Simulated assay, not measured.
Amino acid sequence: MNYTLNQLQIFLKIVKTQSVTKASEELHLTQPAVSIQLKNFQEQFDIPLTEVVGRKIYITDFGHEIAEAAENIINQVHAINYKTLAYKGQMAGKLKISIVSTGKYVMPYFLSDFMKEHTGIELLMDVTNKSRVVESLENNEVDFALVSILPSKLNVEKLDLLQNKLYLVGNTDIIFEKVNQEESFFENLPLIFREKGSGTRQTMVSFFERNTISVLNKMELTSNEAVKQALIAGLGYSIMPLIGIKNELRNNELQIIPVKGLPITTNWSLIWLKGKKHSPVAKAILNYIEKEKSNIVHDRFDWYEKY
């Protein structure tokens, strides 16, 4: 046996994604490079690790056992690295955070200075929709989650970071005067929604239900970036978090349409399961954010506070 740590990591990623293509994307490698490493790894075993049916790759029972062993090996390597750093007096370990997609405009600013100071910490930040964020928290897969709507069925503790403001947004082809909550206005307005499971969608739907506004003409897109590009192109209008449209507002690509009842305000909150025993790294980052939150908001989000 002469397999490398790199081959173990690649094989483990293939097993987790069930796809060579997805594994290559997540590892930032070319698909041929991943395929070659998989082939070289497979050649070291007499029993198949994978099989291809049609164009889909399947992991054999033996392959799953090897993947489990590979994960244990990789974890042990990380543990060695962390112990080495800890012996030198440096903070080391993993920090796992799951954040809703629009949270990518928020969370990095609360982490950057801390991560620069503690280079031995490995940050794993999953950016996904609200449903998956809540699921990862419920399964205790992460240290923290960042949400703009608190999960109703989980007992959590929280630290509020920043107010979340959602406005009706469109491109600048037509300039709107002050708009009342008239059903006819929204009925004739092509509206763009995020996908089901998105916190932004949940907030947008709640606004229409709360104000008994009927929406007939709508489109659904699966990311905040996709919604922005659709708005800029003139495909419609949407209720969006202000935090994600800073540059588009400054470049006059998008405008906030003044509608009675908007903005909707919630809070960006860092949450964790009530009673969770934090690792030393998780405790340190939580203490840091609690101490520095006001300074970070002032330094990094000054533009945001003016709206």
Rank of each mutant, 00 (worst) to 15 (best):
N40V: 03
M107C: 04
I271V: 09
V53N: 07
I213R: 02
N6E: 12
L85Q: 11
S35D: 05
G93N: 02
I285M: 11
A79R: 08
N180W: 15
F176Y: 09
Q18W: 15
H64R: 10
L162G: 00
V34E: 00
W268F: 06
S152Q: 15
F114G: 00
Y304W: 05
E248M: 10
K96W: 11
K94H: 12
K158I: 06
M107P: 01
T222Y: 14
Q9Y: 15
R201V: 12
T60E: 13
N247A: 02
G103M: 01
E138D: 09
L123G: 03
V53P: 03
F114L: 03
D126R: 13
K153Q: 10
N287S: 10
N2Q: 12
Y237P: 00
M107F: 02
I57G: 01
P258K: 12
A67Q: 03
E138F: 08
I296M: 00
V227W: 00
A67E: 02
L286G: 09
N40C: 12
A70V: 01
E305C: 06
N217F: 06
N224R: 10
T200M: 08
N267S: 06
L8P: 04
D160H: 11
M204I: 11
D61Y: 09
I14L: 15
S148D: 11
N211S: 13
A23E: 02
D173E: 12
T212R: 13
L137N: 00
W272I: 02
G63N: 03
V77R: 04
E183I: 13
A70Q: 02
K94T: 14
K178E: 14
Q181R: 05
K16G: 11
L235V: 14
V147N: 01
N164I: 12
Q37W: 05
L124E: 13
Y82L: 12
I73C: 09
P280L: 06
P263G: 02
A92R: 00
G275Y: 11
L49S: 00
D126S: 09
Y3R: 15
N188Y: 08
G93P: 03
G199Y: 01
K283A: 13
N180P: 10
A23I: 05
Q9M: 15
Y58D: 04
E182Q: 07
Q18V: 11
I174E: 09
